[in-house]
């Protein structure tokens, strides 16, 4: 029982991480049709900025996390304004440009701080464990789950209750129509990129806590599972991404523990293949 609880909490924590990356990816894709392959780079930027704040500048963890998230948000806005916007009429080139950024940014991080993993200082307040049903679960798992839940609620409220949320939802449904009604969708693009970048950078800062270290390749590794989550959740859907993230995180943890190590990652891909075979139509559905 204790093992099951521990695995479930760890799986949910991992799922929370996937959700933080996938929610932004899903929104960006839903609204702009851009497959953002630089999203992993944004996560790495957030992770390194948080690490820099905590380990180099001596901030406490929460301040460092806020700094990392803000830094990642700015990076995402710059990426959108400088690279994505001029290529607005060339959708495939937008994807290719993000590929270039996805290659260059981790390489730059590696050039500055080296390719080896840097240990992340664990804050005192989050170093302990919580006992649930006989299992000692590290506190940081709950931090991740809490952060993801907050982001989910905030995103739902933003999409459902605000004017910009309305524009984003309408844009996901039919971008041409929104433009025809005289709404400047490009502002919504920048906004969605900022939200996605913030969520990814927050995910980066939390991933540093979860894994206990930062390395340049972290973002790219997590990105691939985030893609799986986005496809499973139905592209453009935040709620779908949340459900899929939980499923992927749990499947991965349980399969990794009860079968051979590494089989969990394969099980996730097998699950994706089954879904693609069983109901390909629903996977390309668009509902914010």
């Amino acid at each position: 029982m204790a093992t099951v609880v521990l695995l479930a909490c760890t799986g949910l924590g991992l799922g929370a991480l996937y959700f933080l990356i996938a929610s932004g990816l899903s929104l960006i894709f839903g609204l702009m049709d851009v497959l953002n392959l630089a999203h992993g780079a944004l996560l790495s930027v957030g992770a390194y900025a948080t690490w820099w704040g905590a380990a180099q500048a001596g901030l406490n963890y929460w301040l460092a996390l806020a700094f990392g998230t803000a830094f990642g948000t700015v990076a995402a806005v710059v990426l959108e304004l400088v690279l994505i916007r001029p290529l607005y009429t060339r959708p495939r080139d937008q994807i290719l440009a993000t590929v270039g950024v996805g290659l260059a940014v981790p390489a730059l991080l590696m050039g500055i701080w080296g390719g080896d993993a840097r240990p992340f200082p664990q804050p005192e307040s989050l170093a302990g464990t919580v006992h649930i049903a006989g299992a000692a679960v590290p506190v940081n798992r709950f931090v991740l789950i809490g952060a993801a839940a907050l982001v989910l609620v905030a995103l739902r409220l933003f999409l459902a209750r605000t004017r910009y949320g309305l524009i984003v939802r309408a844009g996901v449904e039919d971008r041409a129509m929104v433009t025809a009604l005289g709404v400047d969708v490009r502002k919504a693009f920048t906004l969605v990129f900022a939200i996605g970048g913030a969520a990814a950078a927050l995910g980066g800062g939390l991933a540093a806590l979860y894994f206990g270290s930062v390395n340049p390749g972290q973002g790219a590794n997590l990105l691939i599972f985030a893609f799986v989550v986005v496809v499973m959740g139905g592209m453009g859907s935040v709620a779908g991404a949340a459900a899929a993230a939980v499923a992927v995180g749990l499947v991965q943890q349980f399969a990794n523990y009860y079968t051979a190590d590494g089989l969990g990652d394969l099980a996730v891909v097998a699950l994706l293949a089954v879904l693609v075979l069983a109901r390909p139509r629903e996977l390309t559905g668009r509902l914010a």
């Binding site: 799986v228 986005v230 496809v231 097998a270 994706l272 293949a273 693609v276 075979l277 390309t284």
Partner: peptide, 20 residues
């Protein structure tokens, strides 16, 4: 399998297989 989805979905599914 992967051709059951089109466009970006195809790109992501092939990426997942390659990663596996």
């Amino acid at each position: 399998v992967s051709l059951r989805v089109t466009g970006i979905g195809f790109a992501m599914v092939t990426l997942a297989f390659a990663q596996a």
